[in-house]
């Protein structure tokens, strides 16, 4: 089993699972809010086409949860808007 954290909570995953699949299995449905409406989003296409399941992994925003394989000890957090508010000016 692989273990990672999501917004501070510990989540387990099977080896080879994507971040999105592991979050889905753990009961999460959304981990992103949209830039304009602040609406919740999670997995939609599941195969890297729609860019709806964006997530922050180890500080890197904008990753597709459906394509990003979980590694043990990953720090995953939900993404608000573009996920780069630290650059906002």
């Amino acid at each position: 089993m692989t273990t990672f954290s999501f917004d501070g909570e510990e989540v387990t995953a099977e080896p080879g699972q994507s971040v999105g699949a592991a979050l889905l299995a753990a009961g999460y449905r959304s981990w992103r809010t949209t830039r304009h409406g602040g609406a919740p989003r999670g997995l939609f296409c599941g195969i890297g086409v729609c860019f709806d399941c964006l997530v922050v992994v180890n500080g890197r925003p904008g990753l597709r949860a459906c394509l990003t394989e979980v590694r043990d000890g990953d720090v995953v957090s939900s993404q608000e808007g573009a996920g780069r508010d630290h650059l906002a000016c």
């Binding site: 904008g62 780069r84 650059l87 906002a88 000016c89």
Partner: peptide
């Protein structure tokens, strides 16, 4: 680029 917050004024 991908959409960003206001990063360039």
């Amino acid at each position: 680029t991908e959409p960003l917050p206001r990063v360039i004024r």
